[in-house]
Amino acid sequence: MNKIVRWTSVLAVVTLGFAAAAQAQDGKDLAKSHACFTCHAMAGTKVGPGFAEIAAKFAGKPNAAQTLAEAMEHGEKGTFGAMPMPAQAGLTDSDAKLIADWILSQKK
């Protein structure tokens, strides 16, 4: 019985790992499909800050994913300087949240 419990636990951890990896890929694919890479790079500034810089700035902050999702949906200015982030037309709440979660998973 103990072996079954251990294998079930291992299977659950592996499944969660695959789910997180799939969600991260979904976030990156959504960022590509919504043209986020037009203004943002993985690291370094293009028009706006790189995803790694965004992740670093919001690391550990409460409600970081929600804050980023709202910035994408409604626009934002001042967090990274004078260049505003315009509202992204056609971005759903769920897509914005997936993209925000993916951005926050990026490391410098």
Rank of each mutant, 00 (worst) to 15 (best):
Ala19Tyr: 08
Thr79Arg: 14
Asn2Asp: 11
Cys36Asn: 01
Ala35Glu: 02
Leu98Gly: 07
Glu73Asp: 10
Thr67Val: 13
Gly48Gln: 00
Ser33Met: 02
Phe51Val: 06
Lys107Thr: 11
Thr92Leu: 01
Ser94Arg: 06
Phe80Gly: 15
Gly78Thr: 11
Phe80Asn: 14
Thr67His: 05
Ala12Ser: 13
Val47Asp: 01
Ala20Cys: 05
Ala19Gln: 09
Pro62Thr: 11
Leu11Asn: 09
Gln25Asp: 07
Ala31Leu: 03
Asp26Cys: 03
Asp26Ala: 08
Phe37Ala: 01
Phe18Met: 11
Lys61Glu: 07
Lys3Met: 10
Lys107Trp: 00
Ala59His: 12
Ser94Glu: 14
Thr8Val: 10
Leu30Ile: 02
Asp29Trp: 04
Pro62Ala: 12
Leu98Ser: 10
Lys57Gly: 03
Ala22Cys: 05
Phe58Val: 10
Ala64Pro: 11
Lys97Gln: 10
Leu16Cys: 14
Val14Cys: 05
Ser33Gly: 03
Ile103Phe: 03
Gly44Ile: 00
Pro86Tyr: 07
Trp102Gln: 04
Lys108Trp: 04
Ala19Thr: 13
Lys108Asn: 04
Cys36Pro: 04
Gly90Met: 06
Ser94Pro: 11
Ala100Pro: 06
Leu98Phe: 03
Met72Asp: 08
Pro86Lys: 05
Leu16Val: 12
Leu104Glu: 04
Lys107Tyr: 00
Gln25Ile: 07
Ser105Met: 01
Asn2Phe: 09
Phe37Trp: 11
Asp93Pro: 15
Met72Cys: 12
Ala89Trp: 02
Met1Val: 13
Phe18Asn: 06
Val5Asp: 13
His74Leu: 14
Asn63Pro: 05
Lys97Cys: 02
Ala52Met: 01
His40Met: 02
Thr38His: 02
Met72Gly: 09
Phe80Val: 15
Gly75Arg: 14
Gly48Phe: 00
Thr15Ala: 11
Gly44Asn: 01
Pro86Met: 04
His40Arg: 00
Ala89Pro: 15
Gln88Pro: 13
Gln106Thr: 08
Leu104Arg: 06
Lys97Pro: 10
Gln88Tyr: 11
Lys32Val: 11
Ala59Trp: 08
Ala71Trp: 05
Ser33His: 03
Asp29Phe: 05
Trp7Gln: 12
Ala20Asp: 01
Ala21Asp: 02
Lys57Asn: 06
Gly44Met: 00
Thr38Met: 00
Ala24Cys: 02
Gly75Thr: 13
Leu68Ala: 12
Leu16Ile: 08
Thr67Lys: 09
Gly27Lys: 01
Val14Thr: 11
Asn63Lys: 15
